[in-house]
Design a binder for these strands. Structure first.
Lengths: 140, 140
DNA sequence: TTAGTATATCGTAATGATTACGATTTGTAA
DNA sequence: TTACAAATCGTAATCATTACGATATACTAA
């Protein structure tokens, strides 16, 4: 998902384009590219450019972007983390515990597991690998 | 993990056996067998038998049991859930979104994925399937 | 270009899960 | 039975998140 795609989607759905909304998109596509970041991370970034910004604004837009599929999220250590949705075919991620960097894993365990759950209704699944990325290995 | 195993482990490690600690083990091996339950679920259960029990007691023992490997935990909808550790070889779970019931999945995606992460340090992974168990399908 | 209006934001309070801690009670070893 | 470390209680504090009335702003239509 690119900034342009996201902005077009927002306009198409009738949402207003504000400078805050644009800056949030910039944060996730530039500074936090391919990284999972928390609401706090985003707040700290926004606060530099828009002193006095409200947490309400941060959370409201995170939720909106998540609903619209602009952001994807996961829960790490009891805190929600967000990143730009990465398109393409269904896949999962390795996530660095230190910096949140992700690496695409083109593999889905459901290809092997669905058939083991005949009498169950499957709604969803989660597969994530955690550890250190090459960059954080060398600097820690 | 059985109640007896857990009590022996506690004694071996020098922890005291209290009636609260025993009741917590009973909760997870009887009422909540093979189910993921929250701190609140446990608190409500304990409150019936020990009116005025403190959340401190509930959380302190959940953490202790988790550290000792008596309980395993996962985060669902922003809330920690616990269940008796189920032994045997490494595996993952289907988890019912309504009642927390789990079903063992004798499959681990890491058998397929480790080799894709040569230059990464892998510390941990999570694979869970969510949906409805047969019982909740019929009653909902 | 401007006025009108729905939407977005701010400032701040409330909520819910979890953690923390001093005072009191209790399990266990001697 | 006593001594004391550990466990519990009662309650306050913390942290992430949600909520909401008042104000400001983006967008539409004239």
């Amino acid at each position: 998902m690119t900034i342009k795609d996201a902005m077009n989607l927002l306009r198409k759905k009738g949402y207003k384009m504000t400078d805050r909304r644009e800056e949030i998109l910039k944060f996730f596509s530039d500074e936090a590219e391919n990284k999972y970041k928390t609401a706090k991370d985003l707040y700290d970034h926004m606060e530099k450019r828009y002193p006095g910004i409200s947490y309400d604004t941060v959370y409201r837009n995170l939720h909106l972007y998540h609903e619209l599929g602009i952001l994807e999220s996961t829960e790490l250590d009891g805190e929600k983390h967000f990143r730009m949705t990465c398109g393409g075919s269904h896949h999962h991620h390795f996530i660095c515990k230190i910096c949140g960097t992700t690496k695409k894993l083109n593999f889905c365990p459901m290809d092997y597991v669905s058939k083991l759950l005949g009498q169950y209704i499957i709604d969803d699944h989660k597969f994530e690998v955690y550890g250190l990325c090459p960059k954080c290995i060398t600097t820690n």
